[in-house]
Amino acid sequence: MNQFLQILVSGLVLGAVYGMTALGFGIVYNATRVINFAHGEFVMMGGLITAVLATNFHHESWLAACEAVVVVATLGAILDRVIIQNARRREHLTLVMITISAASIFRGLMEAVVGRDVYFTATFPGATDLHVGEIYISGQAIWVVLTLAVISTSLYVLLHHTRLGKGMRAAASNERAARLYGIDPGWMSTVSYAIAGGIGAAAGAVIVPLASGYYQTGLYFGLKGFAAAILGGLGNPFGAIVGGMMIGVLENLASGYVSSGYKDSIALGLLLVLLLFRPSGLFNLAEAKRV
């Protein structure tokens, strides 16, 4: 039983990260109807940049995390402004290809600048490890939950109680009408990418003490985050987090009770099954995208 609870707890922590990743997918999708294949790289960069700054440049880990968030948010904005907006008139197939190749750019950038080393970081200061009965909860888990709470609340406030957020929702809902009200959908798109970049980076940064930083992890974060997004219904923030939790727990259960070598394939297999049989997810709010 204890082993089960331990697995559950670690699964929930991991799931929080997947959930945050899924949120990022949802933000960009809601604003632009594009699924950003490079999103997983935002998460990877968040973690890797944090780890490098903390390890090589001796920044305080929480400071390094903030710096990483800023850098990646900027990269996200650049991705939109420079690359995606220039290709807006292209057919959808091409836009998908562009985000795929953008992912390669970010991965390649990290490989070129940081290299192929794996970076490890200590738990962020301020939280100590907990022992609840026989269950061990890493101090970092507290940071993860805290980050998730802060991000979810901020996002909610942003989207529903600020002009910017309402502008984003308007531009997503009806571009032409939004333009007539003085909202610039291009700018909204850039903001969405920047926010998604920031959230993704925060997710990556906060898990890096537990997961380690490496330039190849983006693909896995991206796919699992996407699986969480689909599971919860693409574009549905609540569903994203719940979906993320479910995937995190499922993955950990498989890893603990079946085999850890195959653990990644659990989430990937689930994604395949979802895409093939229930692309609208559990909460049915987003439309299933059929041809």
Binding site: V34, I35, F37, H92, L93, V96, I100, L219, L223, F226, L268, G269, L271, L272, L275, L276, P279, K289, R290, V291
Partner: peptide, 13 residues
């Protein structure tokens, strides 16, 4: 049956 980006994700997975 999948649209382009879902198909790309599925083949990636």
């Amino acid at each position: 049956r999948l649209s382009s980006h879902y198909l790309a994700m599925a083949t990636l997975a």
